[in-house]
Design a protein around this nucleic acid. Structure first.
Length: 332
DNA sequence: AAGGTTTACAACCGCCTGATG
DNA sequence: ACATCAGGCGGTTGTAAACCT
């Protein structure tokens, strides 16, 4: 018995997504919201299976995704969380609001694994969780084996679709693409054929999705909407996190009008806007989240976290995680 | 410069779980 | 209780890009 896998259905297109497909998908999500993926191919005419559409959105098109190099803090966080949770990449990624599980997984497999292996070989004892004895089941844990139940804190981000669409549209309509932008002539690719046609319109290529400069670049405009109060320049060290502080980091949640992150701090729980679309409430506490408990990360993970007038920041590369500790937060 | 090798990561695939009838 | 289905998750693969010889 068993139903046909999504991938076997009729003649679904596979391989890299084109900008046109992206636009169609984002337009659809703008109108209907993410979810109900089954209806996406039929409603949009995309010859992609629902699963492919969902993955494309969650791993690539969704606004707020940070791509590129992981900084030291992120790397350390991943190592610690992998030790705690095993290869539960989605759970791990939920602690890194701007990263996808796929990204975290890839980073682990291509960078951290290698690093840890080297360290082991050179006799430095940082325990590698890649060792067979550490994760006997190969990392595939039952979804019930973790400390925290599945809940809102593990839900995906569904944010600011309007901005994503607009950024894509603008990029597609650029008559003078800037160096490094997505839809460039593909000088770097011998197989690429992108460029401009006689009318100045951008021609799109099959190298689109694998370009190192991808959709995230197009969303720069969206990122610029982050309130000034959240800009890295506003990070001012007031006091270090103290060992006595209890920090509980939740994950991303979606709101009707923006993206939020959950943080708990000294038995208070906050829902902070980290990338609202033009919201002017910046990083104030905008809501309360308190219906689940979650593991407290090791204190080592608190390195480089700073407090400034009730706002928590993560130091390094001007990265801002953001947290409000104002009096609107409530005890857990 | 050319060819071979390695790296990085987007996408695929299959399994699992929870919801629903 | 069972069957079916959609969506989520983690492992794996394919391939463009980067690097090396």
């Amino acid at each position: 018995m068993g139903r046909l896998p999504c991938w076997d259905n009729i003649r679904m297109k596979k391989g890299p997504w084109t900008p046109e497909e992206d636009i169609i998908l984002v337009s659809y999500i703008q109108e209907h919201g993410p979810g109900n993926w089954r209806s996406v191919p039929t409603s949009t005419g995309l010859t992609r299976c629902s699963k492919s559409c969902r993955l494309r959105w969650t791993n690539y098109l969704r606004p707020g995704i940070k791509r590129g190099n992981f900084n030291d803090n992120e790397e350390r966080l991943i190592v610690h969380l992998q030790a705690l949770l095993g290869n539960r990449w989605a759970a791990i990624a939920s602690y890194l609001p701007q990263r996808t599980d796929n990204d975290v997984k890839n980073y682990w497999n291509t960078h951290i694994k290698k690093k840890l292996r080297k360290m082991q070989q050179s006799g430095h004892g940082e325990d590698s969780n890649d060792s067979p004895h550490h994760c006997p089941d190969g990392g595939r844990l039952s979804s019930h084996s973790g400390n925290a139940p599945k809940g809102q804190w593990e839900r995906r981000l569904h944010t600011d679709i309007h901005a994503a669409k607009q950024a894509l549209c603008e990029a597609l309509l650029l008559d003078k693409p800037s160096p490094g932008s997505l839809l460039l002539t593909a000088e770097s690719s011998s197989k690429g054929s992108s460029g401009h046609d006689a009318g100045g319109n951008v021609q799109l290529t099959s190298t689109y999705a694998s370009s190192t400069v991808n959709i995230a670049r197009l969303l720069d405009g969206w990122m610029k909407n982050i309130p000034e109060s959240l800009s890295p320049t506003s990070v001012v060290t007031k006091r270090e996190i103290r060992p006595s502080d209890t920090l509980v980091m939740g994950g991303p949640v979606s709101g009707l009008d923006g993206q939020y992150s959950i943080f708990g701090y000294n038995n208070r729980c906050c829902l902070s806007s980290v990338s609202g679309s033009g919201r002017d409430d910046g990083n104030k506490t905008v809501g309360i989240y308190s219906d689940e408990s979650r593991p407290v990360p090791p204190l080592a993970m608190l390195e480089n976290w700073l407090l400034d007038d009730g706002i928590m920041y993560q130091q390094g590369h001007g990265e801002l995680i953001g947290m409000s500790l104002d009096d609107n937060s409530i005890p857990l």
